[in-house]
Amino acid sequence: MYAYIIRRVLYAIPILLGVNVLTFALFFWVNSPDDMARMHLGMKRVDQAAIVKWKQDRGYDKPMLFNPKASGIEQLTDTVFYNKTITLFAFDFGNSDDDRNINRDIQKRMWPSLAIAIPTFIIGLLFNITFAMLLAFFRATYVDIWGVISCVILMSVSGMFYIIGGQYLVSKLLHLVPISGYDHGIDAIKFLILPVTIGVISGIGAGTRWYRTIFLEEISKDYVRTARAKGLSEFRVLFRHVLKNAMIPILTGVVVVIPSLFMGSLITESFFGIPGLGSYTIDAIRQQDFSIVRAMVFLGSAMYILGLVLTDISYTLVDPRIRLE
């Protein structure tokens, strides 16, 4: 398994490099270093000398990908791309274009994101699986039919509606929790109830239908019939046998997102005033801060790859037939 993991990590290097090249090309396709300088310096009374100085201080005065004036390897290394890329692989993101240490900002902002994402993820997962099993149990009855209809309705509603509607109903009309805001420690709970509840509810439709499909597929298999024939209760059949055997497709969709949880959610954090990482990338794109954009894209890609590796590893834990070679 270790050889497999090492191999996957090595595979990740060209993938990350490719993602970085794409990010670089797309970003500078839209924004030139001069545009970035103007955005950072402001629009009033800024002259070309100030723009040139800003670019020099941040290394954006160098050629983008290839430096014809340099010699040897420096033709590649004395470029914006190399200087902004190489340290990423050591997870040293350096400073943003407005001179803030990105690593520290990420460390600080990931906790509020996790404070929402982890409970939403866990509660949502438990609720969706339970609800899906309930529907599977009552398949082809009024519970199943109305459950599926409800799921489709829940899926059809925009995420924004849940947020605005939830804030209006729970905070404005019923005065039960604050509309938005955040605090640290135990005081954070009252701010998290609403976004977590909304996060769970908005995910019920898609999640439940997905798990229901998996369970229904499992229920039709022979081992389930055997279990029933042995006289096991339907509850035990579902939770002891079907659930266990349905873990592989569930893990495929679940484990892969775990490492990315701390990246946060833009809309939720924005509406609820949560100081997480959700808006970090979007704010950086708006402010044309390439240093943050490339750091966050790199981190997101790395986390996704990590999620895939973890998914593979998790297969071996739930299914003894699988071996990673």
């Binding site: 509309i179 509406f271 005033g273």
Partner: peptide
């Protein structure tokens, strides 16, 4: 001074 990116929560508060 609280960060309020969206106008709806800000107005209701």
């Amino acid at each position: 001074l609280k960060l309020e990116k969206e106008t709806i929560p800000y107005w209701n508060k």
